[in-house]
């Protein structure tokens, strides 16, 4: 349950941030497009993630206290920025319904939410990379978090705005490039980090590797699903005249999402903290 709560939280919030990044880019390219579905989805995902994060706490009704130490705690910073991101997203949805003619304000909010979200992902990664868990202490944590944000955001944005971006060739290119780049970086970062973990003298690092070894099937599924989802998308948008086929976009989205969710669960499941005799 503990891993599940954190998996849901981080996946939902990162997907929400990713969607918002592409909403901001989309509005920058074409101010007439609203991307209502994508904006609502980002908001709902952010809220679902925030609620899931409470399930991880021993005292969820005291969660507000986690805002007290912004100056020193990465966790406190993350909670601040997640809250600000969700507030900006809610404001956007309210404006889209209440004052849709105020396009520049909506675009401004989208850009602000995207920037806040990007910083939030950095804080999320810092929580783990600064901990005493050798498995988390590599650059791979940061890369995996940004890769998940970009790939999930891009593909969900595409699925949710398929009609609005049908004629936006540049947007399609940006989405395909983002997914390709994210997945390539993710693979490039994870392989050396696992090699470094194996070469480490830390018993905690070796324990994490042993857990990953026991869950090798799940690990294989993670990569097969992520790569299959990305390749399917790239194959579909291989040239400018390519049409977006809803079923293929949906399949690609499911594959990529399942891959990232399985990967995130493994990220938490393989956590072993150093300790006396495990240094």
């Amino acid at each position: 349950m503990e891993h599940l709560a954190l998996t849901i939280f981080s996946i939902c919030v990162q997907a929400a941030i990713g969607i918002m990044i592409f909403v901001a880019i989309g509005r920058l390219l074409n101010k007439e497009k609203i991307f209502k579905n994508a904006t609502i989805a980002a908001t709902v995902l952010g809220i679902v993630g925030a609620v899931a994060s409470l399930m991880h706490l021993g005292k969820p009704f005291s969660a507000i206290k986690a805002l007290y130490q912004f100056g020193s705690s990465w966790l406190s910073r993350e909670i601040w920025f997640t809250a600000i991101f969700i507030l900006l997203a809610i404001l956007m949805v309210v404006l889209i319904y209440a004052k849709p003619q105020n396009k520049s304000a909506i675009s401004g909010l989208a850009a602000a939410a995207a920037v806040v979200g990007l910083i939030d992902v950095f804080f999320m990664a810092a929580i783990y990379s600064s901990s005493s868990v050798p498995f988390w202490q590599s650059i791979a944590t940061l890369v995996e978090f940004y890769a998940a944000t970009l790939s999930m955001g891009a593909i969900l944005f595409l699925l949710l705005s398929i009609k609005e971006i049908a004629e936006m060739a540049t947007m399609k290119k940006i989405i395909a490039l983002a997914v390709a780049l994210a997945v390539i970086l993710q693979v490039a970062a994870v392989v050396p980090s696992l090699i470094a973990l194996g070469a480490s003298s830390s018993a905690a690092a070796h324990s994490s590797l042993a857990i990953l070894g026991n869950m090798a099937v799940a690990n294989a599924f993670k990569w097969i699903f992520i790569l299959a989802g990305a390749l399917l998308l790239l194959w579909m948008v291989k040239d400018e005249l390519s049409k977006l086929v809803t079923n293929i976009v949906l399949s690609s989205t499911i594959l990529l999402l399942v891959g990232q969710i399985v990967g995130r669960y493994l990220f938490y499941a393989a956590m072993v903290v150093t300790g006396v005799g495990l240094s």
Binding site: H56, L57, S132, V273, V276
Partner: peptide, 20 residues
């Protein structure tokens, strides 16, 4: 009174001292 049981100290302490 301030603890919310987030367990972040359990991840941070290199000696695995804090207990839930």
């Amino acid at each position: 009174d301030l603890c919310i049981g987030c367990k972040y100290c359990m991840w941070n302490c290199p000696y695995s001292v804090p207990q839930y």
